[in-house]
Amino acid sequence: MNNQSTFKAFRVEEKDGNYSSTIKEMPFNTLAQGQILIKVHYSSLNYKDALSASGNKGVTRNYPHTPGIDAVGTIVSSESNKFKVQDKVIVTSYDLGMNTDGGFGQYIQVPEDWAVKLPENLSMKEAMIIGTAGLTAGISVLRLSETVKPDDGPIVVSGATGGVGSLSIAILKKIGYKIAAITGKETERDFLIKIGADEVILRPDFEEPEKRPLLKPAFAGAIDTVGGVILENIIKSISPMGVVTCCGNVASPKLDLTVFPFILRGISLIGIDSQNYPMNYREKVWEKLSNDWKTATLTETCTEITLDQLDEKIDLMLKGKLKGRTVVKMDI
């Protein structure tokens, strides 16, 4: 395996209801059971990681804990018939970083069913720029594009500067769609145009509650990452036979709607669950993300940090002040 007795990990601890984090040396026998032991080269910061790091019991029940729902690295020990030592693999979703110690540690041990081989056309860093956010974006685009084609009209993307939103925009642009981006960050208009948005809509102009059951059709489809009133107004503004995917609830998990958009315009609302997405579809999406959907602006959505910078970035994420993707280099 290796000659080390410990490895570094970003460890979150609880004391009297307060949560704090430090970089600790962890013994290997603290790792979860699993068929493959992986040396992590990169991880990435996701909203679930920020919640886990701040003591959200809906994400992580027990502490101390190592967050990190994304990891990519090299297998150093394998009891699997599917993977061998030196294979490069991606692990995203499932229970990684939630109640199983995650990618903010230099090593993880996981079941073989959680891993996907790193596609040949992706570097490890690129895989983590994509990560769970990109997988979620990819699944959303796949489900949307099964029905809505580029010629049908523009696609609106909410939470546009976030990980899922920004990667969705880049993928949609790559395959020929026109995109309207909804954001609360007026200062990021140039960033959104650069990654592929054709129009930028400021959130205050779109999040006022609207009592009318239907609004004038403006979009052929949508990828929503925030929920709440914005999702309500998106659904009301979709053209007949349009498709809306939803994957987040940072604004609100509640919707105040009538059935009219669905029965009068034939709109479909598709929930996206990347955490437990079936492996055969997961592999298909990763293959697309590494080939047809790989974008020239991929690295432009990314900031690279080290473990000791995580606290600062987690704080910014919880305040809604991060843009794009934050990748954590673990080789320190």
Rank of each mutant, 00 (worst) to 15 (best):
R143N: 11
E120G: 15
G131I: 14
V89K: 03
S145G: 02
W114C: 06
N62A: 06
I129H: 10
I69C: 07
Y94M: 15
K125V: 06
Q86N: 15
D101Q: 13
I108M: 09
G105W: 10
V85D: 12
G97S: 10
K88R: 09
S93A: 14
L118W: 11
N62P: 07
K82R: 14
L135P: 05
K84F: 03
L142M: 10
K125D: 00
V141E: 05
T100G: 03
K82S: 03
I139T: 07
L135H: 14
T92M: 05
R143A: 02
K88H: 06
A127F: 12
P67G: 07
L118T: 08
E79M: 06
P150N: 00
K84R: 08
V85P: 01
G105Q: 05
F83Q: 02
L118S: 03
D152W: 00
Q106N: 10
V116S: 13
V89N: 01
S145E: 02
I69F: 09
G134R: 12
A133G: 06
L96D: 02
D70T: 09
G103T: 01
R61W: 01
V91N: 01
H65L: 03
D70Y: 03
D101V: 04
V76D: 06
D101S: 09
G105H: 10
N99M: 05
H65V: 00
Q109H: 02
D113N: 15
K84M: 12
D95H: 13
P119I: 11
V110G: 04
V91S: 02
A71W: 10
E79R: 10
T92A: 11
A127N: 12
S145P: 04
Y94Q: 11
L142G: 01
G97K: 00
L135E: 03
A127I: 01
M98R: 14
T74C: 04
V110F: 07
A71I: 05
D151T: 14
P67W: 00
